[in-house]
């Protein structure tokens, strides 16, 4: 099966999932559960953007939460000091995260595997420490308050679903174009990709910048939703959640991170009532998936649905 067909099928499945979830407000207008879905959508954007980097380009960054935090501070600081309207704050947050991602991506170009993981982890910690210690500017751990953009949960719900749909469509268009081919080629073998004439520096940096911008976009949007920005957004544990969601859902597929984000976050809210062991369970699940089913839930589903045709093959 061609990569095109695979990608289109994943896109259709994602679209169906999003349509189904978008119907939730018709069933319930419960503020708490709509809030849970909003946060899930936030994580779905983060996980999808990280997946572009880790799953499609092979750059295993440990900084997605840091870029979300940078985006959130971009919006909150410009609102606090220059009083910009939310839509401008959103653009600033996205842009700042994208620019920093561009620079970082260019700098870490040559690093791979554990080296890249360590470098991006350090970058994330530095960003968080700076945000938390620059008290005169960011108010440190107290956080920066923001005027809420909307007050109605249902509106917020649709705003986040709109944002997620936008990101997914963007990723689909990107991956369907020749960029998708080049990124996967770079992931599989950089030297072979260069031999074939792929501009390695350009595409790797572009992937880093796009992924960071998308994470920053999610962070900025979340800042207006939560109406408070704290350095906690950039905690390594948040990155841990993003990685967990992607691995459980299925790394390297368009739909995997979305499924993973909703499944993990909604279940964890639900499990919160039964003792709060959710993080232990998810961490164990991640290890199990990484060890036994590297293609995640989506991989399991595709194998189960097409056992004969793919008998000789590895699942999607």
């Amino acid at each position: 099966m061609s990569g095109d067909v695979r990608l289109r099928r994943e896109f259709i499945a994602t679209a169906l999932l999003l349509v189904l979830l978008a119907l939730v407000p018709l069933v319930t207008r419960d503020v708490y559960w709509l809030g849970v879905l909003v946060v899930s959508a936030y994580f779905a954007i983060l996980a999808s953007s990280w997946n572009l980097l880790a799953g499609f380009t092979g750059q295993f960054s440990l900084a997605p939460a840091a870029f979300a935090m940078i985006g959130a501070y971009g919006a909150a600081l410009s609102a606090a000091y220059y009083n910009v309207p939310p839509i401008v704050g959103l653009i600033i947050g996205t842009g700042v995260a994208g620019l920093i991602g561009l620079v970082l991506g260019r700098i870490v170009m040559r690093l791979r595997g554990p080296y890249l993981a360590l470098t991006t982890l350090s970058f994330a910690e530095i960003a968080r420490l700076v945000a938390s210690n620059s008290i005169n500017i960011t108010r440190g751990d107290l956080g920066l308050p923001l005027e809420p953009w909307f007050n109605d949960r249902v509106i917020w719900f649709y705003v986040f679903f709109g944002a997620l749909t936008f990101v997914i469509c963007g990723l689909y268009l990107l991956l369907r174009s020749k960029a998708g081919l080049f990124l996967e080629a770079i992931r599989d073998d950089e030297i072979a990709a260069a031999r074939s004439g792929v501009r390695i520096v350009f595409w790797k940096t572009a992937a880093f910048a796009i992924s960071s911008a998308a994470a920053g976009f999610a962070g900025a949007l979340y800042a207006y939703f939560a109406s408070l920005v704290t350095p906690e957004l950039g905690l390594v544990q948040q990155t841990g959640l993003v990685v967990s969601m992607t691995v459980i859902g299925g790394m390297g597929s368009l739909i995997g991170p979305v499924v993973g984000a909703f499944l993990v976050y909604v279940t964890s809210e639900w499990l919160r009532d039964v003792g709060g062991w959710q993080l232990v369970i998810f961490a164990a699940l991640v290890i199990m998936f990484a060890r036994l089913f590297r293609t995640g839930l989506w991989g399991l589903v595709t194998t189960a649905l097409a056992p004969r045709r793919r008998a000789a093959g590895r699942p999607a």
Partner: peptide
């Protein structure tokens, strides 16, 4: 080959999450 580095990062990262939260609970 290919997945080796990613696997190592994911598994040890998740193990850290697991142990911290297990002890916490």
């Amino acid at each position: 080959g290919l997945m080796r580095d990613e696997y190592a990062v994911i598994v040890t990262f998740a193990l850290s999450l697991l142990l911290v939260n297990f002890v916490d609970k």
